[in-house]
Write a protein that binds this DNA or RNA. Sequence first.
DNA 1: GGTATCAAGATACTCACGGTATGTCGACGC
DNA 2: GCGTCGACATACCGTGAGTATCTTGATACC
Lengths: 197, 197
Amino acid sequence: MATAARLSRSERAALTRRELLAAAQRRFFRDGYHGTTLDDIADEAGYTKGAVYSTFKSKGGLFLALFDEVVDRRVEGIRELLAGEDTHAEKLAALARRPVDDEHPQYVLLMIEFWVHAARDPALLEAFSDSYRRLRAKLAEIAPDDAHFGRDRWATVTLALSNGMALERLIDPGGVPDDLMASAQRRLLGPEPPAAG
Amino acid sequence: MATAARLSRSERAALTRRELLAAAQRRFFRDGYHGTTLDDIADEAGYTKGAVYSTFKSKGGLFLALFDEVVDRRVEGIRELLAGEDTHAEKLAALARRPVDDEHPQYVLLMIEFWVHAARDPALLEAFSDSYRRLRAKLAEIAPDDAHFGRDRWATVTLALSNGMALERLIDPGGVPDDLMASAQRRLLGPEPPAAG
DNA sequence: GGTATCAAGATACTCACGGTATGTCGACGC
DNA sequence: GCGTCGACATACCGTGAGTATCTTGATACC
């Protein structure tokens, strides 16, 4: 009667993993990393904490698995952007509109929350860095060929600015207008002006 | 025999508060917000958790009191910078060298850690914002008169970039050279170039 | 100067959460 | 079929934020 046929052990485990990741995404996005408990996630997925620990090494491991998937999707999004027919300027404009965040605005904050958390744990930081560098490397491909900034430097500055802006927006939601990021982007891409007085 | 004479109740309480704040600063700076327990802080100051809760409303309240003091000192530092004899360009250079961090490099990360934490708690966020805006307002006074960016926007972008760079540095400590911030600053300050291709 | 009061702070709890140890049951190898 | 082993549940532990209560000494009042 159940639609799901009998599953092999590995199919069963793979399904559990997917369901836990989906539940983790919903909860982490909504309540943040520290604000989400493993019981929350397990409940939402219809399991118990035992399932989590039999699938992932720790809460951090679960988050990292999720983050890596999110980066996958984001990298794919950038790839499509690059492959599109738009002019380069239009690609940059599209990027400026939603710098690193997926459809979810909370995404950036969640990432930063975990980032700072991982700063205290070398193993977590290393794994996080691996995913994050993938994102940054893909982003660097968008930089114009003739950028006066190097591509990597441009990507670094773009991400730094984008992440920092997300924090500023928490303080003054209306004080960080859409065009501020776009305007800053244009300046970052241009030739360096002489030292201003 | 004890050097400290008998203290009145309010003197005693004020001393306790100072000692707790000093201990909190050392511990928070070293171990981060979530990595520091109230027992740690109380121990370090020679008290128990009871003293903390009789002096502050909560762990967050203790942090906010500390943060406000740190902002005081930072604002004072900027005031001195502004009052100095240096040229405006030199002031900006001095600022670029240590954007928002006091003498402690961990300061920025600690701030961001709490910032994101406070994002989930309106009361905490409001109190944090009050202190942070004081810092940003003081920073805005450094912006050059002829900034093509508005002063406030310049301060917002400067802080966003500085905070974001601190995060990037966690990923690649050597990948964010000193001049990157300064170079980005110069671009952000200059006139907006025509749309690049 | 003695005594009641009240607040600073210590002590002893509660509860939530990450993580572990162990139990159970069904898939897989033989 | 039947023993094994892995997926997951259940029961537990340690730790940390926050609370309730007790102790003690400064202050106010007589």
